[in-house]
Amino acid sequence: MKNAIRKTALPLALSFALLAGGALAQSTMPASSTSSSSAAASAAKTHAEKRADMVEQQINDLHEQLQITDAQSSQWNAYTGVMRNNASRASEAFQQRSQKMPTMNADEVMKSYAQLAQMHAEDMQKLSSAWSDLYAVLSPEQKQTADALFQHKALKPHHGMEHKKAAKPASASSSTTASGT
């Protein structure tokens, strides 16, 4: 059960991963020397293709765990449509930013990041609305499963937070010096 929960895609985590992951990983990872045919095929995929595959896997996992019924398919399809659209928009935006990055100055880089953050916020609003519509038609058992999945994910530190917490005591004096206070 824990393994299934860990692999479950949660909309918030997905969206954050798309935003943060695209900014941090603009290139694909090299294939290992002991690659099988599936590993070679995976290495040949673009970053965008890998993200699209991840979204589809997360959609499939969530569908299975929530046991979506035919009666809920309209709301489910609307929700997954928003997920796919958000992932596509994020991928495209990060690709465009990556292509422009070598010629951007610091001010343009900062503005481009602000634009990505704004897009992320807008996409999260759309996803939240679609989720609310889906959640409203879930059975009590499905809601309980969804609640547990979301609570489990919310208890995990966000990307990078575990590093900040660990480094805080040691960096307290350096941050004071760096900020000039």
Rank of each mutant, 00 (worst) to 15 (best):
L18D: 11
L116Y: 00
D61I: 14
P30L: 02
A117M: 13
E49T: 12
Y113V: 12
L24A: 11
Q75W: 04
T181P: 01
L19K: 03
L66Q: 05
Q125L: 13
S91R: 01
A178H: 04
S175A: 13
L18Y: 02
K7E: 15
A136M: 05
A154M: 14
T28E: 02
A44W: 01
H63K: 15
S98R: 13
S32T: 15
R84N: 06
S38F: 05
V109Y: 02
Q26C: 14
S74L: 09
L12C: 01
Q144M: 14
L10Y: 01
A25K: 11
Q95T: 14
A41Q: 13
S15A: 06
S15D: 04
G21S: 03
H163G: 10
T103E: 11
P169M: 03
S91W: 01
Q57V: 07
L14F: 03
S27M: 14
S37A: 09
D70S: 13
A106K: 12
Y113F: 09
Q125R: 15
T181Q: 09
A87E: 00
H152P: 00
A48H: 07
S32A: 13
P157Q: 10
E122D: 15
A52R: 11
M101N: 08
K111E: 02
R84H: 03
E56L: 08
G81C: 09
G81R: 10
T69W: 04
S36E: 02
A148V: 10
K2E: 10
M1P: 04
G22I: 13
A166C: 01
S15W: 00
L19T: 06
S128Y: 04
S132D: 15
E141C: 12
Y113L: 11
V55W: 00
A130E: 12
F94N: 12
R6K: 12
A43M: 04
K45Y: 01
K153P: 01
T177R: 05
L149M: 09
T80H: 00
P140A: 13
G22A: 10
M83V: 03
G21C: 02
A31G: 06
E108G: 03
Q96W: 01
A44I: 03
S132A: 14
R97A: 15
V55R: 03
A9H: 08
D70G: 05
M104S: 10
L19E: 03
A90D: 08
A154Q: 09
K7W: 11
P140R: 07
A170T: 04
M83S: 00
L24M: 08
L19Y: 04
T46Y: 03
Q95K: 13
S171M: 10
H152Q: 11
L138P: 06
G81H: 07
K168Q: 08
Q72P: 07
E56K: 12
